[in-house]
Design a protein around this nucleic acid. Sequence first.
DNA 1: CGCAGGGTTGACTAAGTTCAACAGTGGTGG
DNA 2: CCACCACTGTTGAACTTAGTCAACCCTGCG
Lengths: 230, 230
Amino acid sequence: MGTLVGQGHCLTCPIRPSSLFGCLKESELSLIEDFQTRVIKFETGDIIYNEGESLGLIYTLRAGHIKLTKFNNEGNAQIVRLVRPGDLFGYEKLISSGTYMHTAEALEPIELCQLSVEKLNHLRDQSGAINQAIIERALQQVMKTEDHLTQVGLLKSKPRLAWFLLQWVGETAEAVSFPISRRDLAQYLGLTIETISRHTAEWKRQGIISESKNLLTISDRDALQEIANS
Amino acid sequence: MGTLVGQGHCLTCPIRPSSLFGCLKESELSLIEDFQTRVIKFETGDIIYNEGESLGLIYTLRAGHIKLTKFNNEGNAQIVRLVRPGDLFGYEKLISSGTYMHTAEALEPIELCQLSVEKLNHLRDQSGAINQAIIERALQQVMKTEDHLTQVGLLKSKPRLAWFLLQWVGETAEAVSFPISRRDLAQYLGLTIETISRHTAEWKRQGIISESKNLLTISDRDALQEIANS
DNA sequence: CGCAGGGTTGACTAAGTTCAACAGTGGTGG
DNA sequence: CCACCACTGTTGAACTTAGTCAACCCTGCG
């Protein structure tokens, strides 16, 4: 599962500036001169890794979206994180004993690059900037998760969903890729499929949002923002 | 606010093994030979720092409990984390631009030690182990927050509360310090005061738990565990 | 004593879940 | 090519849960 596209050369990688290696100074670039990673494609529904597995690999998502899920005591899955292009994932492997604490599944056709933990650790010994970058990513992640927590914890279903949609599409008024099923959305937001369906249906009727295939458009941002604040 | 108790010498600190410096090897201990921190006491309700402030300090809690809260767009607070003895907090300061992203408030009389970010950063340049330890703490934090998220996201109120209590007291059958008001508990779990009150009252009537002053005992762990799984 | 704050309890309400039926879509195989 | 099936999403009605509002208790404190 997963098709090897080729070797990526980190030094010349187009997304390097936004990747973990974006932190390197000119003078340090030589460190990754011969750093290569495997660039791999996956199809919708493919599993990149499973909770509990322990490959020594960390990933950077280049294109598409991925969900990270976690299993409860009682066997039902909860989506803990949605990974977007440029994001690092699977970094729990940086903890010595670590096995993956999530299952990573492609929500649409994706492209990612694999990084060997071993190599990365070697790099960390040579550059403080890399360590700093990793710490920053981890702390950013804490903040995002806490944000998610506060939203899920104290917002009612409508504002919660509205908030999520606003987050997702960002600033554009354009149609945006939205490869998330109702089921996944419900799990992610701690609601049921039906509730999601009802709210989106209502908003579509009111012309606040529109949806076609896997594309989402927010037509009336103000209205949605209004709903998000209540 | 906050009473200076004295200078703590990290090298000989009784809680060093469980602190950030627990990671240091014998050979590296000299690094913190003259490392001193201020040990400070706070009273119940005292604020250690406020969201948005930017003192260059990181803390390790030595005794007591602290809550970290965060304000929503609309001004209501959500408790994001409960800090326990031995825990590191305020480490968002490790991000260059960082201001504190929480408000830290003492739930009971506490004792903590202050660590200068500057000094810590200096230390990080000298010891890879410190970096590793920080990364591990940050990732642990991500995991804990995600755990909290899944509990709040997909459990009903009873299992949610039961799960929290089990977490809180840990393995002991003993009475455990429980300095959390109903209000705080409600905020932390994303419920209302009344719901909390009703459930605890019911469980007390059934003899599953008992509470006196600031002490909590789980009398029938199995029953509570049973409730947590549904 | 009177008051404020935290906690408990009850009655009512609103919100969201559950259950169930049904519609649309895509894929498979005869 | 169509019939059938599986899957996802939509909609309605009944039901359950937790939130809301309000009264009340208890404790500590000025």
